[in-house]
Amino acid sequence: MQNTTHTHCLRCGRPLTSAKSQAAGYGPTCARHIRRAQVELTDYKAHQVASAIDLIEDGAIVLIRDQVFAAVSTDGTETHLVHPAACNCKAGLRGTRCYHQLAARMLLAA
């Protein structure tokens, strides 16, 4: 996990006041919405679900415009543009559903 401190919620943009929220990148309400988000997971493997959750918890996926996110690659060397239906990572360019797309779906469902 990164040691990044966020001043605003990565989901709603509101200021974060508690140290716990600043470390997580999400306020308690947004974090609860993300945890409860119902997303169809049958098309994803267990490791993809775990990676999507890690991506969200690390604050490594951020909404940049309507339904388009910027997500950091697993090794932290690249940034991908992600939409719930497409991603410009290697898997996404092959037409395979990637964990970046799943993370985007989870955030939009919350």
Rank of each mutant, 00 (worst) to 15 (best):
M1K: 06
M1Q: 05
Q2R: 15
Q2L: 12
Q2S: 14
N3V: 08
N3K: 07
N3R: 08
T5W: 10
T5V: 14
T7M: 13
H8Q: 09
H8F: 05
L10C: 08
R11V: 04
R11M: 06
C12M: 12
R14T: 15
S18D: 08
A19V: 14
K20F: 12
Q22A: 13
Q22M: 15
A23M: 07
A24W: 00
G25V: 10
Y26P: 00
Y26V: 01
G27S: 08
P28S: 09
P28Q: 13
T29M: 14
C30L: 01
C30I: 02
C30Q: 04
A31L: 05
A31G: 09
A31V: 02
R32K: 15
H33S: 10
I34H: 03
R35V: 10
R35Q: 12
R35D: 10
R36L: 14
A37F: 02
Q38R: 12
V39R: 05
V39C: 10
T42I: 12
T42L: 03
Y44L: 12
Y44Q: 13
K45P: 03
K45I: 04
A46F: 01
A46M: 04
H47E: 14
Q48A: 08
V49G: 01
A50E: 09
A50H: 00
A52I: 00
A52N: 01
D54T: 13
L55A: 00
D58A: 14
D58Q: 15
D58S: 14
G59R: 00
G59M: 03
G59F: 04
I61M: 09
V62N: 08
V62S: 11
L63P: 11
L63R: 13
R65I: 08
D66Y: 10
Q67S: 15
Q67V: 12
V68M: 12
V68E: 15
F69W: 11
F69T: 01
F69R: 08
A70W: 07
A70K: 14
A71K: 13
V72A: 04
V72Q: 10
V72W: 02
T74F: 07
D75H: 13
D75F: 07
T77P: 00
T77M: 06
E78G: 00
E78R: 15
H80Q: 03
L81Y: 13
L81G: 02
V82R: 10
H83K: 12
H83E: 13
P84G: 05
A85F: 01
A85K: 05
A85T: 11
A86G: 04
C87N: 08
N88C: 06
C89N: 11
C89D: 09
C89E: 12
C89S: 07
C89M: 06
K90H: 12
K90P: 11
A91D: 09
A91S: 11
L93A: 09
L93C: 09
R94C: 03
G95S: 09
G95T: 11
T96W: 11
T96I: 12
C98A: 07
Y99H: 15
Y99M: 04
Y99L: 04
H100N: 03
H100Y: 01
Q101H: 07
Q101P: 04
Q101G: 06
L102F: 03
L102R: 01
A103V: 00
A104Q: 08
A104D: 12
R105G: 05
M106K: 06
M106P: 00
L107A: 04
L108R: 13
A109Y: 07
A109S: 12
A110C: 06
